[in-house]
Design a binder for these strands. Structure first.
Lengths: 189, 189
DNA sequence: GGTGTTGGTCAACGAATGTTGGCCAACGGC
DNA sequence: GCCGTTGGCCAACATTCGTTGACCAACACC
């Protein structure tokens, strides 16, 4: 995106975005009111409208994160599981608010669901297409991987199931990597 | 629960519950308004209040489903994966509205999250405790199983990722059962 | 057949929400 | 130093929500 000239209000704009991510992540779309977000950012609710047009516009701006999935060509069959699971764990811990918000909202809001759908289609499907034996099976295999990765994200970061939260990063990788590799490379059962 | 004497309004009561499950499942807690539920059930919104006290009371009543997880003692090491995954698929397809609603709401509403947490703790943990080698690892293993099963439910029934929806029941079982068995019985990596 | 009880509707309330427009102060180029 | 532009606040709007209480109709019982 083109970097526009810096404006005097940039600090406020990002303060709004930060507060919005936190609120969307912890409360979901409906309960995260513009008034609450504005109060967190210590500005007037009308500023949110002026800068982002509407609540939906704010949501779009707040969740504009880049997943930067690894290049499929760098993946190897026997390490693809560790690489992908590790990548997603890192990603989630670095952008916890934004990603938790996206998942939380995707479950309630149709537009959010479509966005999440597009992300996984655009980013995970190429990996499957590149690494799995029969390209025709790539969508199914990508869907399986998505189910396990999203499921762990759901249990660990959204529902916060104690058993899932307690797992160390290395344990999650050790358990999930073989699953992901099998979904991508094992022969169709 | 004690079966109370049949009332003249039982038809209306269940009509409200059916409509509520559909609305909660498709719209989530906040967007499922009492007015919309009442209109679906062809009665006045105030009836919902009279019969169920409040919106939260209606939600509790609508989601009172029994998971009836298989008895752990009937499970065998080499079939536990097929049994559990098949059971959850059947359960979800028979009570699609109620379970989708519960998952959808659990992601937004803290009380819903706690309910889902309790369900998995009370029902899945005993299975893990009975079947996995070291009882001390049972919580972690149950959490892993929950992440995969909830993840498939999320992808297939809530987000409706095309790749996950397209899978036939037997394919889901064939792919997920080895994962579940491994999470429960494989030695700690 | 009168009467109390139950099933149901109607109209309204108070609160909260997204959103809008008007107003004021501070900044920046000339 | 003047004045347009920008950043920000305040007050209010219309709508929608959950919830309430008054009121009416149909049933059941003696």
């Amino acid at each position: 995106m083109p970097d526009r000239p810096p404006r005097r209000s940039d600090a406020t704009r990002t303060a709004i975005l930060v507060a919005a991510r936190e609120r969307f992540a912890s409360d979901g779309y409906e309960r995260a009111t513009i008034r609450a977000i504005a109060k967190d950012a210590r500005i007037d609710p009308s500023m949110v409208m002026r800068y982002y047009g509407s609540k939906e516009g704010l949501f779009d701006a707040a969740l504009d994160v880049d997943l930067h999935i690894p290049d499929p060509r760098e993946l190897r069959q026997h390490t693809v599981g560790e690489t992908l699971v590790g990548h997603f764990l890192t990603l989630w811990e670095e952008n916890n608010d934004a990603l938790t918000a996206m998942l939380r909202v995707s479950v309630t809001n149709p537009a959010g669901a479509e966005r999440l759908q597009r992300i996984f289609r655009d980013q995970l499907l190429p990996v499957a297409r590149h690494i799995c034996p029969d390209p025709e099976q790539a969508p199914a295999r990508a869907g399986l991987v998505a189910s396990q990765i999203l499921g762990m994200a759901l249990a660990r970061y959204v529902l916060k199931l104690p058993a899932a939260v307690a797992l160390a990063r290395e344990e999650v990788i050790a358990w999930l990597a073989p699953t992901v590799r099998r979904y991508l490379t094992a022969p169709h059962p």
